[in-house]
């Protein structure tokens, strides 16, 4: 999550105080990602150093100061909003690695391992859903942030379901058979985070 750009986005609406920025950030994101004052302060300092924001009091920047976005800051924000995040190479996902490894470990029932993770994922989703259910209708930021988390967890569980079904059909663990993946894919699974 880019706190820097989120703060720029809030400042694009007009000048704001540091503490106000913190409150508005939390309100917009449904308080799902709490920010501490120190984080706001250091981020604003960096933004000011890079000429992306200006503060009222050039002598000393602190969260109590008022801040406004500069033309460079506006430009940076517009660029960032349209730049896709890194999605092209698979993340080094700990859960994926656990399941791939578990399939070859003697004495481990990979389906039990999958079920344990599935249950945990569903339990987390129950908590997020409860949070969304408790939220008032006007809390759009919260609903959007919770949806994002629910879709992420849902995709994890779908992958577990697919892995479960695939492994039930597979004749033997991949470690027992010859190379499980073609070299190109193997490189990608071990790709960067």
């Amino acid at each position: 999550m880019s706190v820097k750009h989120a703060l720029l986005a809030l400042l694009s609406e007009g000048p704001k105080y540091g503490l106000q920025l913190r409150q508005e950030f939390e309100a917009r994101t449904g308080e799902v990602w709490p920010l501490n004052v120190g984080q706001v302060y250091t981020t604003l300092q960096r933004l000011e150093r890079d000429g992306l924001v200006e503060s009222d009091d050039a002598a000393e920047s602190s969260p109590q100061n008022g801040f406004r976005i500069t033309p460079d800051g506006e430009h940076e924000l517009q660029e960032w909003l349209r730049t896709p995040p890194e999605l092209s190479s698979p993340p080094r996902d700990e859960l994926v690695i656990k399941i791939l490894v578990a399939f070859g470990v003697p004495g481990v029932d990979v389906h039990e391992v999958i079920q344990a993770h599935r249950r945990y994922g569903v339990e987390l989703m129950q908590q997020w859903t409860r949070l969304k259910d408790d939220a008032a209708e006007h809390e759009l930021g919260l609903a959007l942030a919770v949806d994002a988390e629910l879709f992420r967890l849902d995709s994890v569980i779908r992958w577990l379901d697919a892995a479960d079904a695939r492994m039930r059909r597979a004749p033997a663990p991949p470690g027992v058979r010859s190379p499980a993946l073609p070299p190109r894919l193997r490189r990608r699974v071990g790709g960067r985070r």
């Binding site: 249950r119 339990e123 908590q127």
Partner: peptide
Amino acid sequence: VDQTSPPAGPESLLRSQPR
């Protein structure tokens, strides 16, 4: 084969978020 435990309150999610 399995069932979930009673879920903790949603506030636990927010508390568990790293600051």
